[in-house]
Amino acid sequence: MARRVPLRSSLLARLLGTSVLIALLSTSSTAWLVFRSTTLAIEQERGDVLADDVGIQDALTGYAARHGDWKGVSRTVRRLAAAPACPPALHPVVRVRSPGVRAPRSG
């Protein structure tokens, strides 16, 4: 009669355990890599959007510093909206009408 080998010292059990461990480690490391690369991509996108916003704010602040009112700002806003890096919020039809609002005077 053949003697049963305990499961602990069985070659098959060791190979199965090693395979399961490798599968778990590879799955978890892949998930970590995907999470990390997605996080970096989101951070990069946020930085790009922030830079675009700062550029728009600088352009409008510059316009306000050079002009006494907002009458001609529509040309600047259209130029900003046509820029390829412009946020989608500015892409629809741009209408700038605020007759009561005046640009601050510099100096």
Rank of each mutant, 00 (worst) to 15 (best):
I42E: 09
F35I: 02
A13P: 00
R105L: 12
L12F: 15
A41N: 10
A59G: 08
V93Y: 14
A23C: 10
G68D: 12
S28W: 09
G55H: 04
T76F: 01
T38F: 13
A82I: 12
S37V: 14
S26L: 10
P104V: 14
P6T: 10
P6R: 14
T30I: 03
T61L: 09
Q57C: 12
V93N: 12
R46M: 15
S37N: 10
R46W: 15
M1D: 12
L12P: 00
P6F: 15
A31D: 14
D53H: 06
L7I: 04
Q44T: 12
V20D: 06
D48K: 10
K71Q: 14
V96A: 06
R102W: 14
S29I: 05
D69C: 11
S98C: 10
R78P: 03
I22F: 00
R97P: 14
G47V: 11
A82G: 03
T30Y: 08
A81H: 05
S10M: 06
L12S: 12
L15W: 14
C86I: 09
W70C: 01
P92M: 00
V54C: 09
S98A: 00
R36N: 09
G17K: 10
L33K: 04
T27D: 11
R79Y: 11
P99N: 00
L24A: 09
T61C: 02
K71N: 11
D48W: 15
R102N: 15
P99Y: 00
R75L: 01
S37T: 14
P92H: 07
L50C: 11
T30E: 11
V54H: 07
V20R: 00
R95L: 10
A41M: 08
A103V: 03
A31Y: 14
A85H: 11
A81L: 10
L15K: 05
R75T: 08
G62C: 06
D48V: 12
L7W: 05
S10R: 09
E45Y: 09
P87D: 01
D58G: 03
W70N: 01
R4H: 09
P87E: 04
S19L: 04
L15S: 07
G107Y: 07
E45V: 01
W32I: 05
R79E: 09
A2N: 10
G62F: 06
V34C: 04
K71S: 15
A81V: 11
R105P: 02
L7R: 01
D58V: 13
